[in-house]
Design a protein around this nucleic acid. Structure first.
Lengths: 261, 261
DNA sequence: GAGAGTCCTTGTACGGTGTACGAGACCTAG
DNA sequence: CTAGGTCTCGTACACCGTACAAGGACTCTC
């Protein structure tokens, strides 16, 4: 058995997905099972957040002691890596295939990716930290690559364009989900929390000057409906910026390939 | 004095920057001081990483007990918030002013922001978690807003375009810095680490199928120089995608404003 | 039925964490 | 000399991830 300590000595392989390890399936008295552990951890992560998840609490939730979990898993990080990949599975790849051209496929993928991040606020920090090479994540990556491949961009540029779109989605989903998490922790709606934050800002003399140039924009946005509507509107528009940018670069690469024509 | 526990009850104000609290400056025997604490924490974070920073170690570094730090700071999170904002100060805003039109200003800002994230791998998770409304962060935000304001985009669209660019930079800087961190932890150069990772991938039968469509791209990239050169190339190109996209949207908003002409 | 072996669960313990609380040491003002 | 503010420290609490070894519950073999 590969111990956690051994794994730490080989950080290049520091992912559950790079271990060969038979999944211990639960014929035991507690009816435990890796899938059950991962499912329970996702439930607790959604409800309580990343910081609150501990092996002891997770075990209690499953009616078992903390150390029992270590029969199915090497470390707590492994559980989180499994949870992350499971959640990647929520992205509906069939819907992507059903969509139209690459523009629509990218929109569908981006929207679903963003929704996943917002539905599971713990995902952002985890996805940033781990390798994300579980089976579901790999499938998602393949679909992204496929869509980008259809843009007509030269192959050397495709990974870069993938970054442009999906690192944006990751960043956007991160702040959006953290905002939502904070609102929830404060026990407020997003709208109330937004109003409170802006007010706290405005009342604070040290910020008056910094806020002044933004005032016009803030007012426009405050009058424009709910916070979630603004999140949606901004995201959609930013996606259009990216798609338009890709179209331009496709065109440029065409004319550069055949400058004489 | 506002206690940490009190702060937790008012999460809408959950940032050091929203507390009014006199900075206790150090006339004490240990010569301590909030600036010294923050500077030491940045040094330790750079050297050891976010997970390794503890109040006791930080205190030892400063020749003091852990509890001494709490005279200058309410919680560990406060120290990190101060550290985050201090590092935001590394972005060279004068260089941005010296740059040319909005395109160049965005390039300079994006590059510097990315460099900041890569130089301090602990920044990504922290910047994602806290509000980032310290004085330096506000100044950076203002500069970004200024540059975007000069694009000619309608005001309602400017925050969205800001997101498109700088959430991308955040996401890109996150994976880049995490990759570098992992390589460093493995005691390898980025090139060696990349080679090792790809090899581990290729050798693993469960990934063969998933890798097949990417093989061509991977080969091209492997032959194209160092990993850091590829990071740079991809980032520059993605930025051009974004700038081109903004240009298109500016044009579109012009023709929509005056559809009859 | 007895014994052995495998699978699973548990109790205990170690070394860490953030930080609340109260006791003291110092320095300055009256 | 005393009083009070400023700063540091020792102790303690609750909690964390997890190493280790003991034990219970099955199944298989004789």
């Amino acid at each position: 058995m590969v111990k956690a300590a051994d794994r730490a000595k080989n950080p290049a392989r520091s992912s559950v997905w790079l271990e060969e390890r038979a999944p211990r399936s639960g014929g035991g008295p507690a009816g435990l099972d890796r899938d059950r552990i991962v499912a329970a951890s996702i439930r607790m992560l959604d409800e309580e957040g990343l910081a609150k998840l501990s092996m002891r609490k997770l075990a209690t939730e499953l009616g078992v002691t903390a150390m029992s979990l270590y029969w199915y898993v090497d470390t707590k990080d492994d559980i989180i890596e499994y949870a992350v990949d499971t959640v990647y599975g929520e992205i509906d790849l069939a819907a992507v295939d059903a969509a139209g051209d690459w523009r629509e496929r990218i929109r569908v993928l981006a929207l679903d990716y963003r929704r996943m991040l917002v539905n599971h606020p713990w995902m952002s920090p985890c996805a940033g930290q781990y390798l994300n090479i579980g089976p579901h994540a790999i499938l998602v990556g393949g679909k992204i690559q496929e869509a980008i491949g259809d843009t007509g961009l030269p192959m050397t540029r495709q990974p870069s364009a993938m970054s442009a779109v999906f690192q944006f989605v990751y960043g956007y989903g991160t702040i959006e989900s953290q905002f939502e998490r904070r609102a929830a922790e404060a026990g407020m709606s997003q709208d109330d929390f937004y109003g409170e934050s802006i007010r706290a800002f405005r009342d604070d003399p040290q910020f008056v000057e910094a806020l002044e140039p933004m005032a016009e924009i803030l007012d426009e946005r405050a009058s424009h409906g709910s916070v979630t509507a603004i999140w949606d509107r901004d995201f959609d528009y930013a996606l259009e910026v990216l798609i338009a940018g890709i179209e331009v670069m496709v065109e440029r690469s065409r004319t550069e390939d055949a400058p004489g024509t």
